[in-house]
Simulated scan of single mutants.
Amino acid sequence: MDRDHRSAPQDDRIPVGISACLQGREVRHDGGHKHSRYCTEVLSRYFRFHSLCPEMGAGLSTPRQAMHLVDTDQGVRLKATRGDRDFTDLMTGFVDRTLDGLAGLRGFVLMAKSPSCGMERIRVYREDGEVGRRDASGLFAGALMARYPLMPVEEEGRLNDDRLRENFVERVFVYDDWCRLREQGLTAKGLIEFHSRHKFQLLAHSEATYRRLGPMLADLKSRPLDEIADDYIGAFMPAMAQRVSPGAHVNAMLHLAGFLRDHLEDADRRLLHEQIEAYHRGDVPLVVPMTLLRGAQRKVAQPYLARQQYLNPYPDALGLRNRV
C-alpha cells in the first residue's frame, strides 16, 4: 500500500486538481494567469496535476467580464461586476457536469479570492454594490468541498505558510493511501494496517481522535465493515487537518523514542532527547529530531516503527520539515 517516497515515476504521481491559472494558463478574466512555480516546479514532481478553470469550462471566453457573488432574493448569484449579466446557471451547469469526474483526485489547489475557485473569505455583495459579508466560498470550490468533504483542499496563497503547506502535502499523501485501500477492496486487515501505519501522525494531530479511533477498530464484527470504515475516515481526515503544535510533535516523538529506549546506547539516547527538547524550545526545526529518530529506528531495526508514516510522511526532497 505504501508509496516509495524516494522517487515518483511520472505515471505514479498522485492525481491532484489545480485551478488552471496556477499552471500559467491564460484563462483569467483579464487574459492573464497566476502561475505558481511552487506547484509546477516542486509539487509537480510528486503530484500529477489535473487543471480546471470553471469559467472556461462553463463556456466563457477570455478576456471576459469580471464577476462577483451577489446576495439576491433568489440566493447567492454569480454576476458581472458591471451590468446585470448573470452567470450562475452557466457555472452550476459546469459544476453539475464536472464534479462526478473528480472522484479520483486526492487533493485540490485552488485560486484564492475567486468567485468560482476561492476556498474561503470570498466577498458577497449586496445588490446595492456594497460588500455584505466576507464568509463565502466560490461556487465551484464550495460545491467541490461539499461533494468531497474528506479531500484535502488548499488555496495556493496559503501554501506560502510553512505549516499550512506541510499540512496540506501530508494530508494528500494520507488521503491517497486511503483511496488506494478502498480501490483495492476494503478488508478488516487493510483497515487495521492503515490505522497502524498512520497512528503516530494521528496522535500528533489530535490525541483525542487518536484515543477514540483505536477502540472503534477493536471489534470489526460489531457493524458492517464499510460503515465502520466510513465513520473512521470521517473522523480521521478532519483530525489530520488540525495544525500540529510543537508540544504535540514532542509528545509523538517521545512515544516513538520509548520503543527504542532499551536498544540505544546512553549517548544516542541523550542526544535524541536533547534534540527533541531543542525543537520544543524552537532552537532547531522538526527535521533534526526526526532525522535522529529515523536513524535510531534503522539502527535498532524495530519493525513496528519501520511502518510508521509519521517518520516519513512524504518525500524528504520537499524539505517540508526543515521549516516547521
Rank of each mutant, 00 (worst) to 15 (best):
P215G: 06
K189A: 03
F94R: 05
M253D: 07
S61T: 10
G247C: 01
L110V: 04
D226W: 12
T72K: 05
M67P: 00
F87W: 12
M145N: 01
L78W: 09
V109C: 08
E154N: 01
R171T: 04
A278F: 03
A301I: 03
V244Q: 02
H5S: 08
D230P: 01
D84H: 13
M253E: 15
R123Q: 11
L102K: 11
A278T: 05
E227I: 05
G258R: 09
H205S: 15
A229P: 10
M1N: 08
P152F: 02
P313A: 07
Q297L: 09
R64W: 10
V172E: 05
A208R: 07
P152Y: 02
P15N: 02
A103Q: 11
R85P: 02
G24D: 11
P289M: 02
D100Q: 12
Q201L: 15
R211Q: 13
E274N: 14
R182A: 05
H263G: 09
L90S: 14
M67E: 02
R126W: 08
K79Q: 13
R85V: 11
V287C: 12
S51H: 10
P289K: 10
L181Y: 11
L110K: 12
E155I: 10
C53S: 03
R123A: 12
G93W: 15
G129T: 04
C117D: 08
G104S: 07
H29A: 07
Y304C: 04
H263V: 00
V70Y: 05
E277N: 13
G32S: 10
R77P: 00
V169E: 03
W178G: 02
R323G: 01
R133W: 03
E120R: 15
L191Q: 07
R261H: 12
V95M: 03
R321C: 11
Y38K: 01
L159Y: 03
L213Y: 13
W178T: 01
R77T: 01
E277I: 06
D11E: 14
V172F: 05
V284E: 05
L203R: 12
R106V: 00
D230R: 14
C39D: 01
E127D: 06
I192A: 10
K34C: 02
E120S: 13
E120I: 07
L159C: 08
R182E: 14
R82Y: 11
R270K: 11
K221W: 08
R171P: 13
P303W: 05
A257I: 03
M290K: 14
P224Y: 13
L102D: 12
L271E: 15
E170F: 03
L256S: 14
M145D: 01
G295I: 00
R294H: 04
C53F: 03
L213E: 12
M1I: 05
E166A: 15
P63S: 02
I14G: 03
K34F: 04
L60P: 06
F173T: 02
G234L: 06
D4F: 09
F87Q: 05
S245L: 14
C179S: 08
D30Q: 07
R294C: 06
Y38H: 13
P63W: 11
L271P: 15
Y148L: 04
Q201C: 15
L110G: 07
H249E: 10
L164Q: 08
L220Y: 06
A8R: 08
V76Q: 12
M1D: 10
T187C: 00
D230G: 01
G59D: 03
